[in-house]
Design a protein around this nucleic acid. Structure first.
Lengths: 321, 321
DNA sequence: TTGAAAGCGGTACCAT
DNA sequence: ATGGTACCGCTTTCAA
């Protein structure tokens, strides 16, 4: 590894001068600057960020807390984060916390040990981890004093509800996500507001998790619990897919006997047959804009709104009549 | 932030003693140890890893290079990596390099600036990034002197080929992945060896990418290019899904008219209808074992074999007769 | 405009 | 068994 000291020697100046030249801070003579540049070039020098970080008590690293990477929603979000981070010269550290508060805590501690400069959290969203560094919440906005980028889930719920009544739904099962997840609550209230207004009959099926492993069991439970319904508003696309499969297995056809709408607009929703009508969440954008906001916070730029809401969009395909 | 110096003062010993006590290195008297422990407890101290890293020229961070997180295979792999890393006290830094050599280089430089202790790469697999730190290749094994964990894709290909002939295939389209990806080559040769041996008729459709965006177009192309076939061996599950959709759209039924087999065993393969017969790649395990191997390398433990091959497994569902 | 030197928070060598 | 101290690579006063 080649150090600033070697560059200084090669250039025939002091390390202080090299540092100033490299960071454009303070005065550096034309001559010196040129000599430094040559030395850097010749030696192939690049600064050690660890040393820099030790002094500055910060770094160009972002921590990303995710509840479950194997849920296909999050990789997209992560990609948005990563793209933005990279574009701005930051690296992202991945923390898969699986709705486990201990893991989350462990990661936050880890982050602070490494002088991470900010945290993006799509996990449980406990406010203020000691508030050491700026943080922005992804997708799960929270009350109170904090920054967040999320989807307008109330609107998303309304979109789903409206789509379903427009398609002539008469007996609806709405799958409600975990109550503790604010997005799931908003979505449910959006759905119900439309359903109530339109006076169509519905029942709610509570599900306690978004966990992907549970999808099949949940779908079965749905059919075992209810018998007269013609429409289901699913939790997300994975659950919708599971419900579709269970429906077909039980001899219903889609959308003729049972129609269904999902949430998320995952890759496979487009590719499956029949195509799944769903509400698209701008996962990539949530990630990208969240990262941008965090970086602005870190770099003390002004952030216009603390709580950005992105609009979901209804994607019409073939699972609704 | 509370430092080792403060702990030393509180405990009434020197920083050297605190350091030794904390790291169990060298002699520490019973008394001193106790005083240090109390001080740590009272002050809520935990060591700054950046300072430690500066001195040791290494860190407890792993770099993970991925070609495309939005391809659902990789999140699973990443999860395996993350689980293993976490269990061993390491953090993982995410690098989405998208088959872009510049990005890859940029990341590797980034990694070295942050004293990362090892690299896991599922990306292009260019050997030895200056060979500064240990690295293990994931899923794309390479010739020569290096460590890797991957799936036995030749076997995977054989499995797929055999399954298809056992199901009575007569005219097969085999989709061949990008030639430059060693796994894709192995898979193809596995498939063809079986097909040739069994003397069943086939044609090969070349695809230049695993890129998920291309799936629909590729499926259309398949049907436009060939007309008499009863079986397709797809590149991966995403492509299989796209082919299934296109088939159904064109009035074929599955598996009666056209049967199909995928590769990967992604979540949705189980959830779709008809269930997709596929060859399961142990993505999570590749990630986990790769991380374990890397950590062993870093910690100078002996690594039994440099090139671990994990076995894929045929998952029978309903898309084959 | 430049350089010497004092840290940043640890680790480890060398005396004691 | 313990403490003083040099050093890891870099940034930033401060004096010249």
């Amino acid at each position: 590894m080649i150090t600033i000291k070697q560059v200084a020697e090669y250039a025939g100046v002091s390390v202080a001068t090299v540092s100033r030249a490299l960071n454009d801070s303070g005065y550096v003579g034309k001559e010196s600057r040129k000599k430094v540049e040559e030395a850097v070039e010749a030696l192939g020098y690049f600064p050690n960020e660890v040393a820099r970080s030790l002094f500055q008590k910060t770094s160009r690293m972002l921590g990303l807390l995710l509840p479950d990477i194997s849920n296909p929603y999050f990789p997209l979000l992560a990609k948005g984060v990563e793209d933005c981070a990279q574009k701005n010269g930051y690296m992202v550290i991945l923390g898969n916390v699986e709705e486990d508060a201990d893991k989350e805590e462990m990661y936050v501690k880890f982050f602070s040990q490494y002088n991470i400069s900010g945290i993006l959290s799509a996990a449980s969203g406990k406010k203020a981890y000691g508030a050491q560094v700026p943080q922005v919440l992804l997708d799960r906005a929270l009350e109170g004093e904090n920054y967040s980028v999320s989807t307008d889930d109330t609107l998303g719920g309304e979109l789903a509800g409206q789509a379903v009544v427009d398609a002539g739904a008469r007996e609806i099962i709405v799958m409600a996500g975990p109550r503790k997840v604010s997005g799931a609550r908003d979505r449910l209230s959006g759905i119900l507001s439309v359903l109530n207004k339109e006076q169509v009959s519905y029942k709610v099926l509570e599900t306690e998790t978004f966990n992907v492993e549970k999808a099949e069991a949940t779908a079965q439970k749905l059919f075992d619990t209810f018998d007269t319904f013609d429409t289901v508003i699913a939790n997300n696309d994975v659950f919708a897919l599971a419900v579709m499969k269970e429906a077909i297995k039980r001899g219903f056809s889609i959308p003729e006997d049972i129609q269904i709408i999902g949430y998320d607009n995952m890759l496979f929703s487009r590719l499956m047959y029949p195509g799944l009508t769903t509400v698209a969440q701008p996962a990539y954008e949530v990630g990208y804009k969240g990262a941008k906001m965090l970086i602005d916070l870190i770099e003390k730029k002004t952030v216009a709104d603390k709580r950005v809401k992105l609009e979901p969009e209804l994607i019409r395909r073939d699972s609704l009549r």
